[in-house]
Each structure stands twice: as structure tokens, then as C-alpha cells.
Design a protein around this nucleic acid. Structure first.
Length: 189
DNA sequence: TGCCGGATCCTG
DNA sequence: AGGATCCGGCAA
């Protein structure tokens, strides 16, 4: 298995599972961006699950387009998009190729290598320097990946409706937003 | 080709 | 409450 700084990189099989399960398992894991002196590490504390083409809040609910190509692709890749013309959002693609599922990273805590605000999907991408050049990148290689930290203690998970998807009918009510209760970096209580 | 609205964030 | 700022998706 590949490693960064002596820690195992999460393998593709981690992502190739039920999206809600992946979303829950992502809480507390570390996101690694860049290598060597440029390396930035962040602890994931808030996520949202997007369940594919039948999920009216999910970008893939409108079918395969150039933008959603990556989401319909194989698991374990980054899906990055531009929102409101000024912020980027980072997702990890889940489940087998063709399902169009992903998990949005909504908030992180700073571990090392960078500064800035990280409580919100646009803010964390800005702080970590994530942009469209990261779209479609394979998350199983050292320069952009997820790892399980050695010191992963127990956490309490809060389940809420997703943010900003009121247009999605009954899908807006589903409890698909998860965050670590005790984290100070949650985007909204 | 044009228009509308968005998985956001900041300011007043 | 409203603006920044621009792209994607759909209607025409």
C-alpha cells in the first residue's frame, strides 16, 4: 500500500462503498494536499453525502454532462467545481463508476502547513489552494490524498439536513449532513 | 444564444 | 437583506 509520511493512503476500496458510510467514515480523517515543504494537512470535521442521479440535490441528477463526468467516473477521485463564480467546492467520488455519487467536504480543522478560515466548503478550498486544476485528480497518490491519522480518538456525530438545497423537494429533508459535534470549525450549527 | 439561479461568503 | 461574479443547464 502507498504511504505519505509513513502513513497508509486510503485505498480506492475505501471510496467504493455506500456513500453515507463513506461520508461518516471521512469524519476525523486527514486530507493531505501537496508534497514536501508544500504539504498541507487538514482534519475533516463536516461532510455531506450526495446520492447520485435520483438525488435532486445532486449535480448528477441532470444526467451526464461535461461538469459531472468526473462524478460519474471511478471512485477515489476529486470532483471540484466553481460556485457563485468565486468559490470552489471539493468532493470525493464514491461507489462504482457510473453511479454519480460523491461526498462534499464542508469543513476542516487545520493540522499543519497552512493558515486561514476553514469552516465552509468555499473557505477550506481557498485556504488549501484547491481549484479546478484538482478536478478529476486521483486521491490514491501522495500529493493529494486522504489518510487515517495514528491518533484517531472517538467522536460524536451530529446528523442534519444538507445546507442550501431547499429546491430539492423531499431530498432537502434527508439527514445527509454529518459533523463532529465537538469541533469548533463547523460551518453552521 | 440568452437567461436564470446556484452544494458560498461577506457586509450592512 | 443584498451583492460579488461567472458558469452550467435549459428553453428558445
Amino acid at each position: 500500500m502507498r504511504t505519505v509520511s509513513g502513513v497508509d493512503i486510503l485505498p480506492r476500496s475505501f471510496y467504493d462503498r455506500d456513500t453515507r458510510q463513506v461520508a461518516l467514515d471521512l469524519l476525523g480523517l486527514h486530507l493531505v494536499v501537496g508534497e514536501g515543504g508544500e504539504q498541507k494537512i487538514a482534519r475533516i470535521v463536516e461532510v455531506e453525502a450526495y446520492l447520485g442521479s435520483q438525488d435532486l440535490a445532486c449535480h448528477t441528477s441532470r444526467g451526464m454532462t461535461r461538469r459531472t463526468q468526473v462524478m460519474f467516473g471511478p471512485p477515489g477521485h476529486a470532483y471540484v467545481y466553481l460556485i457563485y463564480g468565486m468559490y470552489h467546492c471539493l468532493n470525493v467520488v464514491t461507489e462504482p463508476e457510473g453511479k454519480g455519487c460523491a461526498v462534499l467536504i464542508r469543513a476542516v480543522e487545520i493540522v499543519s502547513g497552512f493558515t486561514g478560515k476553514t469552516s465552509g466548503p468555499g473557505l477550506l478550498c481557498r485556504a488549501l489552494g484547491i481549484g479546478m486544476s484538482h478536478n478529476g485528480v486521483d486521491l490514491t497518490q501522495p500529493k493529494f490524498c486522504l489518510v487515517r491519522p495514528a491518533t484517531a480518538g472517538a467522536i460524536r456525530v451530529v446528523r442534519r439536513p444538507r445546507i442550501g438545497v431547499d429546491y430539492a423537494g423531499h431530498w432537502a429533508k434527508r439527514l445527509l449532513r454529518f459533523y463532529i459535534k465537538e469541533s469548533p470549525c463547523i460551518s453552521r450549527r
